[in-house]
């Protein structure tokens, strides 16, 4: 089976500042369908830069990138937009939901563009609702982002990434702003999606979060220095049960005090 992502000797040089910054220096990578990859590395190692190129938001300075067999170098601005719309789901660093817009409307957003242009609003709404169900937020569909917790906002962002049934879901530090319990919650959603066959690439700083993935890539100064499969994968559901048990225990001891 052909890889869904195939990059060869990818470079990115930022020319904007006084000194050009060589952020990505020759990354070659193949990602098969159904993989679940964690991209790790120190701050400034080029993770976001690589993700932006994978997400077709930014063009590489050098090198080739084939997404699902399409060479993105040959595409113009609008074709790239359509590609992002149809083949990719992006969960941005820091949610990036539209403010004062309900969860449901945020999730609908990608369907208002691209090949869905002609789809009726009812169908769009239905599909968006379904995606909110997947991330477990159907009951909060009419809440505004400022009425949702960080983890819930992140899940809305994931639902938005899913709504167009992408080939690849890209997430830049999806758990960066979340406490450990909410992080587990989000990883649970990812694992469930991955089990259904969606390819996921996510950036993380945290080693234990990377453990939820199937494959870990480590980036240093713009090059991949390690690429390995995760031997002992953490399963979010089990982790969740452990946390709950611990919480219950804490409560018990806490409640026991006033009585004693």
């Amino acid at each position: 089976m052909s890889p869904v992502v195939k990059i060869q000797d990818l470079h990115k040089i930022y020319e904007s500042g006084e000194v050009p910054v060589h952020a990505v220096r020759g990354v070659s990578l193949e990602i098969q369908r159904g993989e679940f990859i964690a991209l790790m590395g120190a701050s400034g190692s080029g993770k976001s830069t690589l993700m932006n190129m994978l997400g077709c938001l930014d063009r590489p300075t050098r090198g080739t990138y084939e997404l699902d067999g399409i060479n993105i170098d040959e595409l113009d601005r609008n074709e790239l937009a359509d590609l992002r719309n149809q083949k990719l789901g992006f969960v941005f660093q820091g949610f990036n939901l539209l403010a004062r817009t309900t969860a449901l409307e945020n999730v609908e957003l990608p369907m208002l563009y691209g090949r869905h242009r002609k789809v009726s609003m009812e169908k769009i709404r239905e599909r968006a609702m379904h995606c909110l169900e997947i991330v477990g937020l159907a009951n909060r569909f009419d809440h505004f982002p400022n009425q949702l917790s960080g983890g819930q906002q992140q899940r809305v962002a994931i639902a938005r990434g899913l709504v167009n049934e992408p080939q690849v879901l890209l997430a830049d530090e999806p758990t960066g702003n979340l406490d450990s319990k909410t992080s587990v919650e989000v990883m649970g959603v990812f694992q469930k999606l991955n089990d259904q066959g969606i390819t996921i690439v996510m950036v993380t700083h945290e080693l234990d979060i990377a453990k939820y993935c199937r494959r870990n890539l480590i980036l240093r100064d713009g090059v991949v220095v390690r690429d390995e499969l995760v031997a002992d994968r953490t399963i979010a559901e089990e982790e969740m049960q452990r946390i709950k048990a611990a919480e219950a225990a804490a409560k018990l001891t806490h409640q026991a005090k006033p009585g004693s």
Binding site: G55, R77, N78, A81, D82, Q86, F90, L109, P110, Y113
Partner: peptide
């Protein structure tokens, strides 16, 4: 600007 960025990132054309 951010809103516009989000829209463009998830597939809006300049025309949209």
């Amino acid at each position: 600007t951010r809103e516009i960025g989000i829209r463009l990132a998830i597939g809006a054309h300049g025309k949209d």
